[in-house]
Design a protein around this nucleic acid. Structure first.
Lengths: 332, 332
DNA sequence: ACAGTTCTTGCAACCGATTGCAGGGTGGGT
DNA sequence: ACCCACCCTGCAATCGGTTGCAAGAACTGT
């Protein structure tokens, strides 16, 4: 079938061990033998079988990545960065979509753990206990979630929320709605906390609204509650929700930003394409994805999970992008 | 480290072979032995090592999926379907983004081929020759591309294009622009062909415009050429381009659909969120992704690539979704 | 020319599974 | 009580690599 190390060995008239060494410890071979082996390998189109190698080295050369929902453009963006960086580091990436389902996610993690050197979990919905347990025997990196000493790549949600509140305060808003995202989401918790902290300091009132699906449809539902709450601005859990809110408000002939200002989180591509274009807190998604791979790769090669610090990184900076969906509130 | 078949064997007081058989040929074992083995396995949390198994069976249980650009929502949608179906069929999926780069894509295919049982190529930009060569020794399924007898899942671009033209014709448009997508794209070729065929039949004129990147930015660039071409409607290569066109037209204070109607392809989520919401040809992306996996799985288990027909499937039906971005042309 | 190093390379065991083959146990028929 | 199937189960080889160990080659210095 495929060309194996034995074929190359025969062609180069050496033993399989020598062929192996030509790849893994080239400096041990006499230059001319190494050359002979590599030439033969190239001629035959040989490529080492990663699975077989992994069997003995314990390294598969694969990493897993789990996201809650591929339909949220935030995750493809992260994925794009992660996948690119993984390729540079010569890792292949396994992808799974957990469909926002905690049980499924935990099952996926366990299934993956066997086949990969490490796993990146994006906005994981799994329980702290489960993740801590898994982290004990599988290198894990969390993206947008924080649990004990598990390495994590974080985005500065709090800072973003702060900027959003300051922006709205400067425009003169006093009463702002926040429709919650999934309760198990770290992003939701930190965004809410950031909002409330800064709002309290500036004398704004944040009206929390029930939890909504982090989707366009969730935003449609949230919109009506925002209107009922009699606010002049909405900071949505994320851009999808914000777009849903905008859409529903338009259908109800409520002007954005005339009657209600809307702010989102993420700055997904469609945020700028809407009308009005959405004011939102931009997240460096691809960079976060890349960084997650870097952290994981480092964690994998450093056998002893060094218990000194360096696990929790500074959150990646986020920036408020002001577009046309925010304006001063209408005078009563 | 991890619990192996030997550990289970010891715990159940049987040989490793028996443990193996408990999983792969359970009917060969006496019910009580099988039960004893499975119980022991469960207690120890044993899960067979896929890599080791693959070494001997020749099946890895993995499939590869390559897309040209994760930032185009069309592909995450396909991916979502494919990934879900793969999981049901107990396959893990390797993902790679070829960044619209032909050379990179070909390299990725080769690299993957070694580690998977088969590969799904979405809107592949690779050359016919390369793909035919690879298809000889790796099960391949093409999505939105057609080459000889390589199994493919196709979306009915021609039919979609036909509907778009008929819609515009009914509205009274006589001169319609088509900004081309990537020349290596099968979708671009079939969409263009469909448009021109139907336009000829209905006495419309299709003005082809140079090739543009299949992105929002590509659309920005295309818009100006469309205006210069003095058309009353634009059928864009895909929704991203259509949204780019809309955005640029708005910036130039050209009304959509008042001055120019815009039609897209794909019906990505943001098509309905824009303003005006975009008239577009909807593609059953997730279904296509799922189907691709089905076809691949069948192709993998049917060792002899049966040379009877059944390779090329009927294209999946597409439907024109009429929204607010199309209207009768302004009277001169 | 010879003993002692240092380099290179091959041998063989091993990673974690699967599977053909054969041997031991069981049960049925007489 | 004996023979013969048949059913289970274990042994050992194998998949494609890697790696500790040791033997042979080459080189050093005298």
């Amino acid at each position: 079938m495929s060309v194996t190390i034995h074929d190359v060995a025969k062609a180069a008239k050496v033993s399989p061990s020598t062929v192996s060494r030509a790849y893994t410890m080239p400096e041990l071979l006499r230059p001319d033998t190494r050359e002979r082996v590599l030439t033969a390998a190239r001629k035959l189109g040989y490529q080492p079988n990663k699975a077989a190698r992994g069997l003995i080295t314990g390294r598969t050369g694969n990493i897993g990545l789990i996201v809650p929902d591929l339909s949220n453009p935030f995750f493809p963006a992260v994925l794009k960065g992660a996948q690119a960086r993984a390729r540079e580091a010569d890792y292949a990436v396994f992808l799974a979509d957990s469909e926002e389902d905690q049980a499924l996610e935990e099952e996926l993690i366990r299934a993956m753990a066997k086949q990969v050197d490490g796993v990146v979990l994006c906005s994981s919905r799994a329980s702290d206990a489960t993740l801590s347990a898994i982290a004990k025997d599988t290198p894990l990196v969390l993206l947008n979630r924080r649990i004990g000493a598990i390495p994590a790549v974080l985005l500065d949600n709090t800072g973003g929320a702060r900027q959003a509140v300051e922006h709205l305060a400067a425009l003169g808003h006093r009463r702002v709605a926040y429709p919650n995202g999934p309760p198990s989401s770290w992003s939701n918790r930190t965004r809410r906390r950031g909002l409330k902290a800064r709002a309290a300091a500036l004398g704004l009132e944040i009206v929390e609204l029930g939890t909504f699906a982090p989707t366009f449809e969730g935003g449609l539902a949230a919109a009506d509650q925002c209107v009922a709450a009699d606010v002049t601005a909405v900071v949505a859990y994320n851009d999808l929700v914000a777009l849903g809110v905008q859409s529903r408000l338009r259908d109800r002939s409520i002007k954005v930003p005339g009657d209600i200002s809307v702010v989102g989180f993420d700055d997904i591509p469609m945020a700028q394409m809407g009308s009005p274009p959405l004011t939102t807190v931009a997240m460096p998604c691809e960079r976060a994805g890349r960084l997650a791979i870097d952290v994981l790769a480092r964690r994998i090669s450093a056998q002893p999970p060094r218990n000194n610090g360096g696990n929790a990184h500074e959150p990646l900076v986020t920036t408020l992008i002001v577009r046309a969906s925010t304006a001063p509130p209408r005078r009563r």
